[in-house]
């Protein structure tokens, strides 16, 4: 399994990562290596094996439908680069 340069660029763009040409070359090699390594699993026939989703037998934890959180707009906005009247302020989103 190999990843070409165009795929590296596309993935980087989708993840909004700015990468240099040098990094593209290195990532092309590394990502291909990772996929080849994982592809070894294809040597086994897993058609009758359930995907493993947990290492210990446990089920998803659930909450009751109760209000237990929130009312902390000050905390929520503490790291915001810009805020006004308890809103996040971001560069204009044009549609």
């Amino acid at each position: 399994m190999s990843v070409d340069r165009a795929t590296v660029r596309r993935i980087a763009h989708l993840a909004r990562l700015a990468i240099t040409a040098e990094e593209e070359a290195r990532l092309e090699k590394e990502l291909s290596g990772i996929l080849d390594w994982v592809a070894q699993l294809d040597e086994l026939d897993t058609s009758n094996v359930e995907p493993m989703t947990r290492v210990a037998a446990m089920t998803m934890k659930k909450r009751e439908d109760r209000i237990t959180d929130g009312f902390c707009a000050g905390d929520i906005l503490k790291n915001a680069p810009m805020a006004d009247d308890h809103y996040f302020v971001v560069p204009k989103i044009v549609e």
Binding site: I76, Y87, V89, K92
Partner: peptide
Amino acid sequence: HDQHPQYSFVDL
């Protein structure tokens, strides 16, 4: 989008 000419305001 109508609160400011350069910015949008976000409420979560």
